[in-house]
Nucleic acid binder design. Structure first.
Lengths: 201, 201
DNA sequence: GTCTATAAGGTGATAGAC
DNA sequence: GTCTATCACCTTATAGAC
């Protein structure tokens, strides 16, 4: 999506994403973005006019990436029995690499819930092949009855929450050890898959 | 905990909690807290000296309330078969009434992870009766093998995530309708309980 | 396009009267 | 304890030279 942009512009976007996702809109200073991008602060305004506009560029992009990633894995043509494990693995890996963006999105959506509508409508979650698959398997009696919306949220919950609750889990269950926490996330993948399969089959 | 405090002080704490939990530290203006508490801005400094100190009072209190609530329900003396449904119901109701505090806590912990250690250590999550109960039932073969830590996180995930992801769920699955969303949360309680029971028994 | 300098406005914090 | 007035600082944003 950055094809037609100058190098400076891309540097700015990259730096802004890093700072905004960590500190949020209110906590971010334009100076910090400039430092991170190794450019002059005025250039931020030259390219994006205001903090608000720069923020919106980043926010939309991040939300689109996040929801688009969900679409990619839930919408694929694949049998559920291999698809569900793949969802858990792919999404867990993605979240571990991008641990800040979920809280960032949820936090800023709370302040400005309007932005989301267009983007989420564009994605059209309910059209995912996943939803049809669940209904079919339930109809055929291959799976215990469950509304696909709930199973969808259950999978996301079990995958996303442990990542965003990192500080509490580390302090409360892992004796403050980062290593133990990572190990916990790693072993969780198979445990979550088993948990889901036991619940629905 | 507010027993020895003047009325003004309590008004301030109440107002500060409301504003801080919605807007976070960076997004909060002292003037807004003063307005909310219907007092003069200088009084905030008279009672709490600085924004930082007022924030810390609120944050510790909120974190303590949140984790303490978990303790209360996971630590009770009760058979698992009735305890798990009670956990889901009690915590869901609590979260629906306090939808902002989870994101508030997670968001601010990201910025300042040190504060948590003392409070969470104080709570001593691993000592909850719940953990012992799971191990016992697994040993007796009454339950499929699962580490109590994972089951603990699974229950919290399934309960907490749908509340903090409200804007995305509303936009993506509920056609933007608040009513449909509330209905979804309501019916979820039993569905989550069934999901967990199917997975572990 | 990129820089320096500076304006314009807001925010936390304090002094001092009552 | 509570108020008004004000300071000192910080942050966004712009003007203008190069």
């Amino acid at each position: 999506m950055n094809e037609q942009k100058t190098e400076t512009e891309q540097q700015i976007l990259k730096a802004a994403k890093q700072v905004f996702t960590r500190k949020g809109f209110g906590g971010t200073r334009m100076q910090e973005i400039a430092n991170e991008a190794k450019i002059n602060k005025s250039l931020l305004h030259y390219y994006f006019r205001s903090k608000q506009l720069l923020f919106e560029a980043i926010f939309k992009d991040t939300l689109f990436e996040f929801v688009g990633k969900i679409k990619l894995i839930f919408n694929s043509e694949e049998e559920l029995i291999t698809k569900i494990p793949k969802i858990v693995h792919t999404y867990s890996d993605y979240l571990q690499k991008n641990p800040y963006i979920v809280i960032f999105i949820l936090r800023e959506l709370q302040a400005e819930p309007k932005i989301i509508l267009k983007i989420v409508e564009m994605i059209n979650i309910k059209s995912f092949h996943f939803f049809e698959q669940i209904n079919q398997e339930v109809e055929k009696g291959k799976m215990k009855p469950i509304k696909p919306e709930h199973l969808f949220i259950n999978i996301l919950s079990l995958t996303i929450f442990p990542v965003i609750a990192k500080p509490i889990i580390m302090a409360g269950l892992m004796q403050g050890s980062n290593e133990l926490y990572n190990q916990f996330l790693e072993e969780r993948k198979e445990i979550v898959i088993n948990f889901i399969f036991s619940a629905i089959y």
